[in-house]
């Protein structure tokens, strides 16, 4: 008997007695005498310009809706071209949920036919041309939220006043928090970040007001909220209705998102086009503000 085979049989515990050691299997697998077929290796072309890996977080609206029956590759491509055309006219800056922004849009009923709203971005969503975001602020002691479409032609100027991320993907709980958390002055000066720095993450924890709330926040895994201080029964019920199996469901994730290869393809396309647009914008900025469009 082969000595190594003898050793491996000794080492393998009783319950794996019907299996062979990985090493042995691999040796047989690589043997040219084995009857199984082999697939030929494929080499990938690495000369193509590819987007950085975090590009999909910077421009998430370029990814199409992953719902299978809503997908249409031609429409998606045409929409992406339209978005690029809009971006070549108006500067749409990088922003995230938690960023303080100012939006100037045309409004024929407003004095001067222009309206400016400043607020904190509490939600960002949608796909393609229908992508949008929500700004929240407190005006005269009243919480106000405005939903904007990112590619709406009536938007004149989008300005990022303070670029930062928060701990959660949505800040809808600010509706149930004291007003000081969502109050932003309208005359806020833009905060300039040093170039080349990563987007700062604001780790502030919000202390929510007393119930009743808009949603059952104890059932959502919120990171940016202080201890809710609810009676025990609320957490008990939250544990009952929780779906912990979804966390590791690889196929659920796969079905609910655009897969990596397709994302890479789309983002490479976007990256190539954005290079040209960014250089144009830099030139325009250097020339200074021209006549209003």
């Amino acid at each position: 008997m082969n000595f190594s085979l003898f050793c491996s049989a000794l080492v393998v515990p009783c319950r794996f007695s019907n299996t062979l050691a990985t090493k042995l299997v691999e040796r047989h697998r690589k043997s040219k005498l084995a009857s199984h077929t082999r697939e030929e290796a494929e080499t990938k072309d690495t000369t193509v310009l590819t987007a950085p890996r975090d590009y999909k977080f910077v421009y998430p609206e370029f990814l199409p809706d992953p719902t299978w029956w809503k997908r249409d590759r031609i429409r998606e491509k045409l929409e992406r071209e339209d978005m690029m055309r809009r971006r070549s006219v108006i500067e749409i800056p990088e922003f995230y949920v938690g960023t303080v922004m100012a939006v100037e849009s045309s409004d024929k009923y407003a004095p001067g036919k222009k309206n400016r709203f400043v607020g904190i971005c509490i939600q960002r969503g949608g796909h393609g041309l229908r992508a949008g975001f929500t700004l929240r602020n407190v005006i005269d002691g009243q919480g106000v939220e405005v939903q904007y479409d990112l590619y709406n032609p009536t938007i004149i100027r989008l300005e990022v006043l303070k670029l930062e991320k928060r701990l959660d993907d949505e800040l809808l709980y600010l509706r149930d928090a004291p007003q000081e958390y969502s109050t932003v002055p309208f005359d806020m000066e833009p905060v300039v970040l040093p170039p080349g720095i990563a987007v700062p993450i604001n780790t502030m924890k919000v202390k929510l007001g007393p119930r009743p709330w808009h949603e059952r926040w104890e059932r959502q895994e919120l990171k940016g909220v202080e201890d809710l201080g609810l009676p025990e029964r609320f957490y008990k019920r939250a544990a009952e209705v929780a779906k912990p199996w979804q966390k590791h469901d690889l196929m659920r994730d796969y079905r609910l998102a655009i897969n990596e290869d397709e994302t890479e393809e789309i983002m490479t396309d976007v990256y190539g086009k954005m290079q040209g647009i960014e250089t144009q914008q830099k030139l325009r900025r250097r020339q200074g503000p021209g006549p209003a469009k």
Partner: peptide, 8 residues
């Protein structure tokens, strides 16, 4: 698994 050592 493809490329396994067992008979086809």
């Amino acid at each position: 698994l493809k490329g396994n050592p067992w008979p086809p």
